[in-house]
């Protein structure tokens, strides 16, 4: 179900850069169920993850909503045609 998965060019096996960048993937705080990226597309650069979970929005908003996801970001995700956990 993931948004996946083809990434920046690499000519040899293994990571072209620092493998630890995989620990801080931009967008890893977003929804489950996002559409697959087009094959060969360039994904956003690694950066600080917004949340640690597979859900929409912040952990605080999710807790307030009694759900995996915050109500508002979940609604926004659905309106945008994306899925969202919880």
């Amino acid at each position: 179900m993931s948004e996946n998965t083809q990434t920046a060019p690499a000519t040899t096996g293994g990571f072209a850069g620092d493998p630890a960048a995989a620990l801080a993937v931009t967008g890893s705080g977003s929804c489950c169920g996002s559409p697959a990226q087009a094959v060969g597309s360039i994904l956003p650069p690694a950066g600080e993850a917004l949340t640690a979970g597979p859900c929409c929005g912040t952990a605080q908003a999710a807790e307030a909503a009694g759900s995996c996801c915050g109500t508002e970001p979940k609604t926004e995700a659905v309106n945008a045609g994306q899925g969202c956990c919880g």
Binding site: S2, G13, G14, F15, G17, A21
Partner: peptide, 18 residues
């Protein structure tokens, strides 16, 4: 990373929302 180099499979940090 070692396995990627050994097998020639290129890897890159990217979202796998699963």
């Amino acid at each position: 990373d070692q396995a990627g180099r050994h097998t020639g499979v290129p890897l890159a940090a990217g979202p796998v929302a699963s």
